[in-house]
Amino acid sequence: MLAWAVMADEPAGLAWVVRMTSARETELPEDRAAIDARLFGRMVQGDRDALAELYDRFSRPLYATSLRILNDPSEAQDVVHDVFISLWQKSAQFATERGTAFSWAVTLTRNRSIDRLRSRQRRATLIAESAPTDLGYDEDAGAGGAADQAASGDQALAVRSAVAALPVEQKVALELAFFGGLTQQEIAQRLNEPLGTVKARIRRGLLKLRDTLTRRL
């Protein structure tokens, strides 16, 4: 189930770039979770088409997350490959009571990316490269550039908008917590703030994000 959007990223007559937008991101949250759960049910039956559909629904945010953490396309592809194979192999273990399939997939992607990041000898350098102090988009531009907006669905735009509305210090703390691969103490050192302050920022930022998304989605 793919919706196709045709965008003219290049000057007229030179090239047309066809980008895919996952239909998942325009669905209602409960529909989204239910469809994901049904795909897992089909995967348990050995239905590889279900895996292909799941890939279409999850691959972009998972790849973007891994790429953001690792800053290496090749390694990010390996991580996404391993995650989908894990989801395929462990599809029978999926239980909606323990969270959504998307949350599970994101957790797997993030953990494996951070494991790779920490295994690198150049860890300190790479963390600095992959954990900048902003969220990767221009704050003044609202919820991202035109290309990103065109390539994202409602869910992604809602999340970006919700994060953009957070106070800067909470935004930075959440980013380092999610993408940085750092411990609490390392985040505090990076921000040059007391540990208690950092914990409070993460708590307040995440609660606000949850509340905003609950209202919007």
Binding site: Y63, A76, F102, L135, D148
Partner: peptide, 14 residues
């Protein structure tokens, strides 16, 4: 809610 931050990463298409 934390997992939704995956959407905040700069758009990248595999």
């Amino acid at each position: 809610a934390g997992s939704t931050l995956a959407h905040v990463a700069p758009a990248a298409i595999p």
